[in-house]
Design a protein around this nucleic acid. Sequence first.
DNA 1: TAAACATATGAGCAATTGCTCATATGAAAG
DNA 2: CTTTCATATGAGCAATTGCTCATATGTTTA
Lengths: 118, 118
Amino acid sequence: MDEKTPHCAEGHVHEPIVETVNASMPDEEILCDLAELYKMFGDSTRIKILYVLFEAELCVCDIAELLNMTQSAISHQLRVLKQAKLVKFRRDGKTVFYSLADDHVRTIINMGLEHLCE
Amino acid sequence: MDEKTPHCAEGHVHEPIVETVNASMPDEEILCDLAELYKMFGDSTRIKILYVLFEAELCVCDIAELLNMTQSAISHQLRVLKQAKLVKFRRDGKTVFYSLADDHVRTIINMGLEHLCE
DNA sequence: TAAACATATGAGCAATTGCTCATATGAAAG
DNA sequence: CTTTCATATGAGCAATTGCTCATATGTTTA
């Protein structure tokens, strides 16, 4: 048997359940993608950026001002959010306006807030 | 003005919007709690543990076997999930059975999966 | 063209994280 | 009580992360 997985005694009571669960598991890759997605929401700076974009598109320096953080810090995080396709942007002269990429972001954050307020 | 926040030129076009957004921001603490919550879902091991508990309560070694990881690694993560109140447990002799603490966990994970599959 | 401004990005660093390994705890069986 | 088995936990380490600081890029204006 696999050396890496210690296990309860042979003929273990819960084995059938393990089989069932194992069969219904999504692909490893999907679950990793899911973790990557939630990782985006797992940092307070990024949560704040996303929340701030709920109401309006904003430029980098506006966000920095709202969160009282440096332009650089915000820009780095926007890059990450952009890669995760959670925000999109639009250039207008020197200014770059960011906004939520889709409505799921709003839904996911609101769902989390609901969970907290119970 | 605040030294830490660089800002666009004085009399900036988007200032009114900034005011509005600022007024509607939830407390710092709530957004931090929200980030803490999502941090739990932001690791593939924890996501897998939670997913595996969708169908049935399982003991630590069953989970370890399912995920092909060590008992120790799983136990450490279960501790974290327990602290976040995402799982609960029940002792039966030597065995400890873990299960999802509430239905929100299922909902949140499913919502993320939906977002990925579009 | 040069200067000014908004944003992006690379290097570096301190803090956090997720594991391993060894060991402790707690419960049942001998 | 002692052993065995299931689980919990502390120390330590490598990898990741989120920031700062300096600087690069891109756009407008003089």
